[in-house]
Design a protein around this nucleic acid. Structure first.
Lengths: 66, 66
DNA sequence: ACAAAAAGTAAATAAAACTTTACATAATGT
DNA sequence: ACATTATGTAAAGTTTTATTTACTTTTTGT
């Protein structure tokens, strides 16, 4: 699964720490999710999408191997 | 977080076992997710939404305590 | 160039997701 | 009523997500 978190963070001028705080996770979790180290829970995905005013589908996209 | 999995399953005439097989998880996982026992990963949410031809946001909705 | 802020990473741990097996209960069809 | 299918649930175990602390590297501003 890939994601556009880094791009949306840039659009909204947020650091990883900012985003982490806004959705209630640690900065390292944001970093790991952003880098594709692991798949976030649906709650996190929904919160991020809501924050960025976009759909979960536009923020996260399935890949062939998912 | 609440979800409309049970309803969508009914609309599509799928048993929990059917759905489980289609998205590649155990039947018990579907049962647990459906009953709100735990929050699925974003990959599962995306797969279910895609199967039901709807958005993740329409299938899963955040609640006040999330 | 320098300092400060941001991002990357890693190890140890905790918490939650998911599996498997197994059995109980409820619903459905004949 | 009976058999079959579907759902609910539970315990034990594995895997993955997420946290904390701490340190390194990269980026940004002055």
């Amino acid at each position: 699964m890939r994601n556009n978190i880094k791009i949306e963070r840039a659009r909204h001028n947020l650091t990883q720490a900012d985003l982490a705080e806004k959705i209630g996770v640690s900065r390292q979790s944001i970093n790991a999710i952003e880098k594709g180290k692991y798949v976030p829970s649906t709650v996190l995905a929904l919160k991020m999408a809501r924050l960025f005013k976009m759909s979960v589908e536009d923020l996260f996209t399935l890949e062939i191997d998912d």
